[in-house]
Write a protein that binds this DNA or RNA. Structure first.
Lengths: 152, 152
DNA sequence: CTCCAGTAGTTGACTAGGAAACTATATCGA
DNA sequence: TCGATATAGTTTCCTAGTCAACTACTGGAG
């Protein structure tokens, strides 16, 4: 016996945000996984593309994951020969992560998949709507001072 | 040595969608978890609020999760005495899931948290922007014929 | 110098979900 | 009415995160 109506979830912008985001991200996951790479792996590799090498802790902060997660994620990429881990010559505690040539060669193709995925979901919008969506989302980020886009 | 620029991720609407969504959903997760409930548990309970009882397979479809995940999620809610599982009298294979009175009593408070969370992230927008965001997101859902909002 | 608080990274224990195998029941067709 | 096939739910195994404990190193205060 239903009690009182408890506000309709579908009136929440968060509901629709989740709905759209989940489809966008699952579609992208299928695309990159067809290339043998997970989304998290892609994000890490993309970070390294224009950086030569980065410390795991920097990647953790940028990707919004724990250092532990980055440690294991790096292990998986190393096992696939897409990444190299090396001791930092200047700090005995630190490690550096860098793409292998194979890893680096893989990134542009994955970036193309990211472009294709974005187009798949947003290209049909009018350019006004695309601009509005862009502006509103960025506005939320700025207004609330959000940082470090989490991967999860 | 950075190679070619591989399109900037931040030009992707999917990037900003993820960014905003992750913050919205993590903020909500913190709120409901302070009440001893996970987001998935809340979503399941909310589904049952206006339904009396539902089959696990229906919940799986509505929540975009596998039947296996629903089976375990139900176990957890049952362990918290928020849910009851009963054999369907009309089909020996089927089960029905229903809120306990305790579970039912918990939902409105959680719904209020959902309202508060939505307000926290979207209330500062102009009403035009809120309407535009709503219209654009729903448009994407409809234009692409998306269904069953996945929880993950 | 030496010690000690702080930092970098890894690891173990745990959680939550997916895929697929499995059990039990239902339904359809000959 | 019996057997084949389909369906509902559970369970096993796996993946990928978190949190917190741990190891090793650094760098400053005395």
């Amino acid at each position: 016996m239903p009690t009182r109506p408890a506000s309709d979830l579908t009136t929440h912008l968060g509901y629709w945000l989740r709905f759209v985001f989940n489809h966008v991200s699952q579609a992208f996951a299928r695309k990159v996984e067809a290339q043998g790479v997970t989304v998290a792996e892609w994000v890490l590799m993309r970070q390294l593309l224009d950086e030569e090498a980065l410390a795991p802790s920097i990647l953790a902060a940028r990707m919004g994951m724990t250092r532990g997660a980055i440690s294991r994620l790096a292990d998986r990429l190393i096992a696939k020969s897409l990444l190299l881990r090396a001791a930092d010559p200047e700090d005995g505690r630190a490690q550096t992560l860098a793409l292998t040539p194979t890893g680096r060669a893989l990134v542009p193709g994955l970036a193309a998949l990211a472009d294709a995925n974005d187009a798949e979901f947003f290209a049909h919008l009018t350019s006004d709507d695309r601009a509005a969506l862009f502006r509103i989302l960025r506005g939320i980020v700025e207004q609330r001072g959000l940082a470090s886009p989490p991967v999860d």
